[in-house]
Amino acid sequence: MKKVTDFHVVEVQHLSHDTFIIVLQGTEPVIAVLPGQFAEVEVPGSPEVFLRRPLSVHGCDPVAGTISFYVKVVGKGTARMSELLPGEKVSVIYPLGNHFTILEEGRVLLVGGGTGVAPMLMLANKLKKAGAEPVMIIGGRSAADIHISDAYHAVAEMHVTTEDGSLGVKGRVTDHPLLKEEFNFNRIYTCGPDPMMKALSAIAREKGVVCEASLENTMACGFGACLCCVVKTTDGHKCVCTEGPVFDTTYLENW
């Protein structure tokens, strides 16, 4: 059941000059969110920002009553969010969209690029609990883009690629040996820039495994009311907010 409800800012943890994690405390019991689901978050006190902003849920703890988002500043809304102070009120519509499928066994590969890292920790946790063996690659331009805490190492075998080679394997995620000669996975889960996800989808097809990708789109509502957020599938236009954001990439046209 979706709802629109108020949260209060607990803290904004700055990971770098443009990336932060914002933690919110619910004013009502917090609904358990599944990995890949997202929320439509109000940007308070910012008259130039008219619509809410869609953000993947990074963490959700119904016991503590908190929810968190992993955000990169790209414009006015995300910039304002990065300046929110503890105690400020933020209205959130959640949980929205579908979620990644949780396999219960086998080695699975999780690939996050840019803010596509957002849902990956929660996903790895769920997969591991279910009995699968998660391996994760995080890609960035340089070491400054990579923010992985001990929590990641606790649930997944971690790998990093950077385009400038300042951390991990030099190159893009698809240059990693795990996606080449060492490929040995039942499934690929990915979230990040479209070109990266498309390249992973091509590898998955070649290897004969399913690739689940979490897409972004321009959204006005986030819950199926406006039809602004379509992606072309083999079955015509589908709303990313309700039929996604996670899609089996064989279902997407031109992927």
Binding site: F50, L51, A220, L227, V231
Partner: peptide, 21 residues
Amino acid sequence: GNKYPRMAETPAGMLNSVGLQ
């Protein structure tokens, strides 16, 4: 309906071109 992108946020409003999907 029309192709993506179909929505643009504007000052105090939005533009849409859903196109009667």
